[in-house]
Design a protein around this nucleic acid. Structure first.
Length: 569
RNA sequence: CGGGGCGUGGCGCAGCCCGGUAGCGCACCUGCUUUGGGAGCAGGGUGUCGGAGGUUCAAAUCCUCUCGCCCCGACCA
């Protein structure tokens, strides 16, 4: 295409609203424009990237045996009420009424719709397994959209749903998708890792997230340095550390005044005790009148998701002051396990091995010293409920876990029968019995994948697109379009590349060289062919690789051939 | 939802405290010169100062309300 005919409104200055590089460069390179918070228009350049990513996804999904369809974005509440999520999904689900006052929502995901479709149309085991997918715009009314396409409210997502007769089948479907995802992200030129993850609102039994490694990522993942174990910190298990061989002798329990010292840090400093000698007691509640106490070592952090899953609660939050007083008898900041009654007490295993610990006394401005398990208290159970730290032990081997940041671009779930049972998606098996289908679901954030690619591939001057998802593969840049010779050579190369099926952009604008170079670097086309009077005098054009900056000078006559060679390499 | 900040030409901002003709840089349009890393000169267009109400002779500026956007938080007891 010709640059002069394309809408590519590049910006010289950083837009004030952009925080991360991918957002900045997408705005500056004229790929996206914001319409409202978390809602963006894809301009021609940006949409080309989106389509490249989509097509890679399509090819790999089709190769894996999935079938493409397209479901409505607007969904009736009745289906969501059937699955029970109309009540449980929360404010993220954008709801509205039509003119007849019927409730609808804009789909944040499509389990209900696909399950409805399949239960109406698939009845026999002979028709299973089946895997259906779509690439479609979703809407989730995020608390706080940010980072451009990284966390938008409206976004393009590929979502696939598999239906199987039995466990073995769903395992196979899951594995197929897992492999397809690996191929997709490899083809997109991304450094990524598949990690074990929590299943969140979608529900289900087992899942992996596909994380693109990037320091700006919103998720933290723990990877073992020895084996292949990797997990989101929301889920990452921790190998229980061995208890110290000889804990000190147990001293007598003692109450001590700690006026105004509520936080672990304040108490530790005040009593001259390291934080790891403290027991942090957190009172949590589920919003339905249940409360529980969680104990973790002072220098550890509670993993609410682990605790929530362990307690089997639908939601979890820190207890308010009133609840804390009711449950512990003291104000918040001074809660402790000794004498705590009437609510379940879950302790992290690390709490077991603290000898002569410090804990809240459940009284204003008082703490207890020399607290010991089991002499002074016995938790109802010990359970890994803390957040993994860099350097913790791997749960699968003797290795060590290290933390790094990632961007979640894909997620595969084994859903089980959660939706098929609540919505009656059953089939008749060989034995003539009606059974619920076993489901899996598999998502990829298309825009987020593009954004993640920029996070991994950029420099000071702009984006360095990986070839497979670049908006164009080659940029032909004549320095002076007023020169017949230069323009002629550029047009020739442009035509030849086009007819070889290469996505080529011709910068035919009558602009100064420096201006065009700056734009070229910004929009990040992988290969740039520069044609100028000077070079042409010697029959030479330059090919520059965006990422490496490497320049190759080739004879004009061989230019197209050389470029094709570099692309197909 | 809590805290902080910001809405002034397409973009980035100044002006607001202390009310008195709406400005700067970039971008845009015209012409000439220039032409291998965001050119120079000359000329030009561009704004309901986010919106509504109020105070005032007079409001971008002061007051009230409202809408939008950005950042931090919404575990650290």
């Amino acid at each position: 295409m010709r640059y002069s005919k394309l809408l590519i409104p590049t910006l010289k200055e950083d837009p004030a609203e952009a925080e991360v590089v991918s957002h900045k460069f997408m705005l500056r390179a004229g790929m996206i424009r914001k319409l409202a918070a978390g809602i963006y228009t894809y301009l021609p350049l940006g949409y080309r990237v989106i389509r490249k990513v989509e097509n890679i996804i399509r090819e790999e999904m089709d190769r894996a045996g999935a079938q493409e369809l397209l479901m409505p974005a607007v969904q009736p509440a009745t289906l969501w009420q059937e699955s029970g999520r109309w009540e449980h999904y929360g404010r993220e689900l954008l709801r509205f009424k039509d003119r007849k006052d019927t409730d609808f929502c804009i789909g944040p995901t499509h389990e209900e719709i696909i399950t409805d479709l399949v239960r109406m149309n698939v009845r026999s085991y002979r028709e299973l397994p089946i895997n259906l997918y779509q690439i479609q715009t979703k809407f989730r009314d995020e608390i706080r959209p940010r980072f451009g396409l990284m966390r938008g409210r409206e976004f393009i997502m590929k979502d696939a749903y598999s239906f199987d007769r039995d466990e073995a089948g769903v395992d196979e479907s899951y594995q197929k998708m897992y492999k397809a995802y690996c191929r997709i992200f490899e083809r997109c030129g991304l450094k990524f890792r598949a990690v074990e993850a929590d299943t969140g609102t979608i529900g289900g039994s087992f899942s992996h997230e596909f994380m693109v490694m990037a320091d700006t990522g919103e998720d933290t993942i723990a990877c073992c340095d020895t084996c292949s174990y990797a997990a989101n910190t929301e889920r990452a298990e921790i190998r229980e550390a061995k208890t110290p061989a000889s804990p000190g002798p147990e001293a007598a329990l003692e109450e001590i005044a700690t006026p105004g010292r509520k936080s672990v840090e304040d108490v530790a400093v005040f009593l001259h005790v390291p934080p790891e000698r403290l027991i942090k007691t957190l009172i949590v509640m589920d919003g339905k009148g249940h409360a529980a106490a969680a104990l973790v070592r002072g220098d550890h952090e509670l993993n609410e998701i682990k605790l929530k899953n362990h307690l089997g609660w639908a939601s979890i939050e820190m207890a308010d002051e009133e609840t804390v007083r009711k449950v512990t008898g003291g104000p918040s900041g001074f809660s402790g396990p000794v004498g705590l009654k009437g609510i379940p007490v879950v302790a992290d295993p690390a709490v077991k091995s603290i000898s002569n610990a410090v804990a809240g006394a459940n009284r204003q401005d008082m703490h207890l010293c020399n607290v010991n398990v089991p002499r002074d208290f016995r938790p109802d159970e010990f359970k890994d409920i803390r957040i993994v730290k860099d350097g913790d032990g791997c749960p699968r081997c003797s290795g060590t876990l290290h933390l790094s940041r990632g961007i979640e671009v894909g997620h595969v779930f084994k859903l089980g029968t959660k939706y098929s049972e609540s919505m009656g998606a059953t089939f008749l098996d060989e034995d003539g019995k009606s059974k619920p289908m076993i489901m899996g679901c598999y998502g990829i954030g298309v825009g987020r994948t593009a954004a993640a690619a920029i996070e991994q591939n950029n420099d000071q001057n702009g984006i360095c697109w990986p070839l497979p998802i670049a908006p164009f593969s080659v940029l032909v840049l004549p320095l002076n379009v007023k020169s017949e010779e230069v323009r002629g050579a550029a047009e020739k190369i442009y035509e030849e590349l086009n007819s070889s099926g290469i996505d080529t952009l011709l910068d035919d604008r009558d602009e100064r060289a420096g201006f065009k170079f700056k734009d070229a670097d910004l929009i990040g086309i992988p290969l740039r062919v520069v044609i100028g009077d000077k070079g042409l005098k010697d029959g030479i054009v330059e090919i520059k690789e965006r990422k490496s900056g490497e320049v190759t000078k080739v004879p004009l006559a061989n230019a197209t051939e050389s470029i094709l060679k570099m692309i197909r390499k």
